[in-house]
């Protein structure tokens, strides 16, 4: 197996699917400023997906470009974590999902920017700048909603209870990671998890939220085993490419 291809594909799919989900908010945000912010973050994620999937295509060496990978694979070939494909829910659910993701991506990109793989390092360096803003934005909202009104606290606590089961998959590790960690190309996710735990505990505590004690883990995305939601995302995402095959847009 081409481990680096698989690894970059996973990163690219996370950005692609979360960017898609966030873009569903466009025009429907709770305030105009947040409509702008969410569209902006979505745009950053689509940009990351373009760079990452483009590089994955090069690594694969079968002539597939970023668009071919984004639009023309089957459901079981997408490798994003289940967290990013979860429905938007209310604004608090979206911000919490984003916060869990950003808290993972920031330390990951901090390490990856020093990767011995120059191409990956360059993408990570650029994405890190964006991700720092995303994390600042999402953590501020988690705190604001957690420590806002009784209603907002209850709502985001419920989102926390729902999404918690998907967080562990961010640190899913298999032979792909093991090989690349050994070669010194990518960081160990155990290191990233330590930092993630610290960020998440600090923010959720400040937000006066209760971290669920149920540590039941939901995973499968990294192996292409998804929730029912992904099929519908792909039905929209791939619509044009499937309905009008082999055309340039």
């Amino acid at each position: 197996m081409n481990s680096l291809f698989e690894y970059v594909l996973r990163l690219g799919d996370d950005s692609l699917i979360l960017g898609h989900r966030l873009s569903e908010w466009c025009g429907h945000g709770p305030i105009l400023e947040e409509d702008i912010a969410m569209t902006n973050i979505s745009l950053d994620l689509v940009g990351q997906a373009t760079s990452l999937l483009g590089y994955a295509g090069e690594l694969e060496g079968k002539g597939r470009d970023a668009d071919a990978l984004a639009f023309l694979r089957f459901d079981r070939e997408y490798k994003n974590v289940l967290l990013v494909e979860q429905p938007n829910g209310d604004f608090g659910m979206t911000m919490l999902r984003q916060f869990f993701f950003d808290s993972f991506r920031k330390p990951l990109f901090e390490k990856l920017q020093h990767s011995t793989d120059q191409h990956l390092a360059a993408i990570a360096e650029k994405s890190l700048k964006e991700t720092k803003y995303h994390l600042k934005h999402s953590s501020e909202w988690v705190i604001r909603l957690g420590d806002g009104t009784e209603e907002s606290n209850a709502r985001i606590q419920e989102s926390l209870n729902t999404l918690w089961r998907y967080t562990n998959e961010l640190f899913f590790t298999d032979e792909v990671d093991n090989e690349l960690v050994e070669k010194g190309i990518v960081p160990s996710l155990q290191e990233i998890q330590i930092e993630w735990n610290a960020t998440v505990t600090a923010v959720l505590t400040e937000a006066t939220l209760t971290i669920p004690t149920n540590n039941w883990k939901q995973e499968g995305g990294r192996k292409g085993l998804h929730s029912e939601h992904l099929g519908y995302i792909l039905a929209e995402l791939q619509y044009m490419q499937r309905a009008y095959p082999n055309m340039q847009w």
Binding site: H20, S23, E24, C26, G27, L32, D35, I36, T39, N40, S42, L43, V46, G47, A49, T50, L53, A66, D67, A70, F71, E236, L237, Y239, M240, Q241, Y244, M247, W249
Partner: peptide, 21 residues
């Protein structure tokens, strides 16, 4: 936006709608 035919068109459309906001 969620049905744009490729990544470039998707990004441009997102940017355009964001400009409108």
């Amino acid at each position: 936006i969620t049905r744009a035919p490729n990544l470039r068109r998707k990004a441009v459309l997102l940017a355009k709608v964001q400009d409108e906001a």
